[in-house]
């Protein structure tokens, strides 16, 4: 570890900006709350206006915490997928989990016209969470089954992509037959939302994501071996198919859960690992893992802060922002692609 000093510096800067972004994120919104009041109510001293405290505890804090875990989870999943598939454009969506969730939600919302009774039950926001959880879970099981049967890692990637197109096509057909109101509802879900989660939902989201992250931490060493390719990894004593299974399991738990609660949020998973790799100029997952974790949380907080533009009551859809910020980054990365930098 020859660049330790440089790494430590970037880590400290990342940590500080994360805390700052967290406070700024809570302070900004349709009603601006002074940073000092935010700080006071977070450490339990209470804000000077009870309305502020109410807003913070019931709206801003849950949303900020959701943004943090979503940013961490999706970015780490992206990092894992990029190394596992040795493909710089892989992300958490390549396994088709968000497609599965989208398909289920589309069936529930857009298919409501066909079976009204099912429609009314599932149309509640809780029903949507249930539907997308079920959808992710179904694809998760399918992916795990495929991962066990197929020896070729690239084949798993193709299966995931195929499932994505399949789900996309069905959603397309369903939307052709649905009315404007249903379409709008589905579109809103597909644009993602970090807010409106109860504390109970947030603890489920954090619990599941932390479980997935804990599983992922055990793969840091084999992930480094995988940088040399499958055959070298095996020759270094790595149980390749077992490790691959664990990585897919961790990613599935994290992405499945996040998509279920917040909708399919794109680009964070692809873009953040690349930003981190450019920043740290390393491939060691011992560094990349923690850096991606911090950067993912920070960037998601920025995206969320942008959606609730200060002083205005207008809230932009989160998925719009992540894509608007993420897509140019990926294009820019492609333009400045040098041998080896892109990994």
């Amino acid at each position: 570890m020859l660049y330790t000093k440089r790494y430590t510096l970037i880590f400290i800067l990342l940590g500080i900006s994360l805390v700052a972004l967290f406070l700024v994120n809570i302070s900004l919104g349709s009603v601006s709350i002074p940073l000092k009041e935010v700080f006071n109510s977070l450490i339990g001293k209470g804000a000077s206006k009870s309305a502020w405290e109410y807003i913070i505890i019931n709206y801003r804090l849950p949303k900020a915490l959701t943004a943090i875990i979503v940013g961490i989870g999706l970015s780490i999943s992206g990092l894992l997928m990029q190394t596992l598939f040795r493909n710089p454009l892989a992300g958490p969506s390549v396994l088709g989990l968000s497609s599965g969730a989208s398909l289920m939600v589309a069936i529930v919302i857009l298919g409501a016209g066909i079976v009204p009774a099912v429609g009314t039950f599932f149309s509640s926001s809780y029903g949507l969470v249930l539907a997308s959880t079920f959808g992710s879970l179904l694809v998760l099981l399918a992916v795990l089954l495929v991962a066990q049967r197929l020896k070729d890692t690239m084949a798993i990637l193709i299966v995931g992509l195929m499932f994505g197109s399949f789900a996309g096509a069905i959603v397309g057909v369903l939307s052709y037959f649905s009315n404007a109101e249903q379409l709008q509802k589905y579109t809103f879900w597909a644009l993602g939302s970090l807010g409106n989660l109860s504390w109970e939902n947030i603890s489920i989201l954090w619990g599941a994501s932390l479980l997935g992250l804990a599983i992922a931490v055990t793969c840091i060493k084999p992930l480094n071996a995988m940088l040399l390719g499958e055959r070298y990894a095996k020759s270094l004593g790595i149980n390749f198919s077992q490790t691959r299974f664990i990585i897919i399991l961790a990613t599935s738990i994290i992405t499945g859960c996040i998509t279920a609660f917040t909708g399919p949020i794109s680009f964070i998973g692809i873009a953040v690992p690349h930003i981190v790799k450019l920043l740290f100029k390393t491939s060691s997952h011992l560094v990349l893992f923690w850096a991606t974790l911090l950067a993912g949380a920070a960037i998601m907080l920025i995206c969320d802060t942008v959606t609730q533009w200060p002083g205005s009551s207008f809230v932009l859809p989160i998925n719009g922002i992540t894509s608007i910020i993420g897509a140019p980054i990926v294009i820019w990365l492609l333009f400045r692609k040098k041998k080896g930098v892109f990994s």
Binding site: R86, L227, G340
Partner: peptide, 10 residues
């Protein structure tokens, strides 16, 4: 091995 190494920053 003869195979090419996957791209990385190693």
């Amino acid at each position: 091995l003869t195979e090419k190494l996957p791209p990385s920053n190693l």
